[in-house]
Simulated scan of single mutants.
Amino acid sequence: MLEARNLSVEFAARGRRARAVDGVNLAVGAGEIVALVGESGCGKTTLARTLLGLERPAGGQVLYNNEPLSYKPRNLKSYRRQVQLVLQDPTGSLNPRQTVYEAVAEGPRIHKLPDEETVVADALARAGLRPPERFFLRYPHELSGGQRQRVVIAGALALNPQVLVADEPVASLDASVRGEILALLLKLRDDLGLSALVVTHDLGLAWNIADRVAVMYLGRIVESGPTEQVLQNPQHPYTKALLSVLPESPEKIVLTGEPPDPTRIPSGCRFHPRCQVVVAECRTVPLEILPAAVSQQAACHLLKLDG
Score class of each variant (00 low, 15 high):
residue 71 Y to C: 03
residue 77 K to V: 12
residue 81 R to V: 00
residue 70 S to G: 05
residue 82 Q to N: 12
residue 59 G to Y: 07
residue 57 P to D: 05
residue 65 N to K: 12
residue 60 G to T: 14
residue 77 K to T: 15
residue 67 E to W: 09
residue 75 N to S: 15
residue 63 L to Y: 00
residue 76 L to E: 01
residue 64 Y to S: 01
residue 81 R to W: 06
residue 86 V to N: 04
residue 72 K to E: 15
residue 65 N to H: 14
residue 57 P to V: 13
residue 87 L to Y: 12
residue 67 E to V: 10
residue 57 P to A: 05
residue 69 L to H: 01
residue 81 R to N: 03
residue 72 K to T: 13
residue 63 L to S: 02
residue 59 G to H: 07
residue 56 R to Y: 10
residue 86 V to W: 04
residue 64 Y to W: 10
residue 71 Y to T: 05
residue 63 L to Q: 05
residue 82 Q to C: 08
residue 82 Q to A: 13
residue 68 P to T: 09
residue 61 Q to G: 09
residue 81 R to G: 14
residue 59 G to Q: 10
residue 83 V to H: 02
residue 69 L to N: 03
residue 61 Q to P: 06
residue 74 R to Q: 13
residue 71 Y to W: 10
residue 86 V to I: 08
residue 85 L to A: 11
residue 58 A to D: 14
residue 56 R to W: 13
residue 66 N to K: 15
residue 87 L to S: 12
residue 74 R to G: 00
residue 73 P to K: 01
residue 78 S to L: 11
residue 70 S to T: 04
residue 58 A to Y: 08
residue 66 N to V: 05
residue 74 R to P: 04
residue 82 Q to T: 09
residue 68 P to A: 06
residue 68 P to L: 10
residue 80 R to L: 01
residue 63 L to T: 04
residue 78 S to T: 11
residue 79 Y to T: 11
residue 74 R to L: 03
residue 72 K to L: 12
residue 79 Y to Q: 09
residue 74 R to D: 12
residue 85 L to V: 10
residue 85 L to F: 13
residue 72 K to M: 08
residue 80 R to V: 02
residue 57 P to E: 06
residue 58 A to H: 10
residue 85 L to N: 08
residue 62 V to K: 05
residue 75 N to F: 10
residue 64 Y to R: 00
residue 72 K to Q: 12
residue 77 K to E: 15
residue 66 N to F: 08
residue 69 L to Y: 00
residue 61 Q to K: 13
residue 59 G to T: 08
residue 66 N to I: 06
residue 79 Y to R: 08
residue 84 Q to Y: 10
residue 71 Y to I: 06
residue 81 R to Y: 01
residue 76 L to T: 07
residue 72 K to F: 13
residue 63 L to A: 02
residue 77 K to A: 15
residue 87 L to W: 13
residue 86 V to H: 06
residue 71 Y to K: 00
residue 68 P to R: 08
residue 82 Q to R: 15
residue 66 N to E: 14
residue 63 L to W: 02
residue 62 V to C: 03
residue 83 V to A: 04
residue 64 Y to E: 02
residue 79 Y to I: 07
residue 73 P to E: 03
residue 80 R to G: 05
residue 77 K to G: 14
residue 60 G to C: 15
residue 84 Q to G: 02
residue 68 P to V: 04
residue 66 N to H: 11
residue 76 L to W: 04
residue 70 S to I: 05
residue 59 G to C: 02
residue 71 Y to V: 01
residue 65 N to P: 02
residue 69 L to P: 00
residue 78 S to C: 13
residue 67 E to N: 12
residue 60 G to V: 14
residue 82 Q to M: 11
residue 59 G to R: 13
residue 64 Y to F: 15
residue 58 A to I: 11
residue 80 R to T: 07
residue 71 Y to F: 12
residue 73 P to T: 08
residue 87 L to A: 11
residue 75 N to V: 13
residue 65 N to C: 14
residue 57 P to W: 05
residue 75 N to I: 10
residue 74 R to Y: 05
residue 58 A to P: 03
residue 82 Q to S: 12
residue 75 N to E: 13
residue 61 Q to H: 11
residue 85 L to W: 14
residue 62 V to Y: 04
residue 59 G to M: 06
residue 81 R to H: 07
residue 75 N to K: 14
residue 85 L to D: 05
residue 56 R to V: 15
residue 73 P to F: 03
residue 71 Y to D: 02
residue 73 P to C: 00
residue 79 Y to S: 06
residue 67 E to I: 12
residue 77 K to S: 14
residue 85 L to Y: 12
residue 80 R to Y: 02
